[in-house]
Design a protein around this nucleic acid. Structure first.
Lengths: 75, 75
DNA sequence: AAAAATTTATCGAAAAACGATAACATTGTG
DNA sequence: CACAATGTTATCGTTTTTCGATAAATTTTT
């Protein structure tokens, strides 16, 4: 639920490793990891732009909105 | 160039005013304005989520990556 | 002109990104 | 097993930025 970060998905598609991407966009692996694993609570546009540029994709490929599941959701 | 915020576009599509949207997502009009007019340099996922929820759309509808135009760009 | 809506601009506080660094877990290779 | 490569998690500190509150200025509508 909430905003889902799909950077890991796009990285898999592009066959690029965390270390590689981190180096290319000038982020530490540690901080990229936080992003990848949905731990970040915000993102700077400069970072979003760098990732889009490097992965050749759009913000919509990296971020997704998942509406809250209704309470009485069946299994 | 860079990351473009299209919140104003989606608001137009949904026929909702700044004051209305601001009130619904719990943001001040002033801060929503900063977002709308591309003045923000980052965004909290909580805010992005609230907008997506209220406008019933995806982050990709609100954020766009515009690659830098090549230097020798013709008029 | 008047009213309403929007944008712009400060100020301050709270939150968060991000760098640097280190510890730890995984996985693969000889 | 030892070793290296990769990725995750966690702290600490600095810098940045959001966002609220507020008010002024601007634009739009009636």
């Amino acid at each position: 639920m909430g905003i889902i970060v799909n950077v890991d998905v796009m990285m898999a598609r592009r066959k690029i490793s965390s270390g590689d991407l981190a180096a290319r966009i000038g982020l530490t692996q540690a901080n990229l990891s936080i992003l990848k694993t949905n731990k970040a609570k915000a993102i700077r546009f400069s970072t979003l732009e760098a990732i889009c540029k490097e992965l050749n994709c759009q913000p919509g490929d990296l971020l997704e909105y998942e509406p809250e599941e209704s309470k009485g959701d069946a299994k």
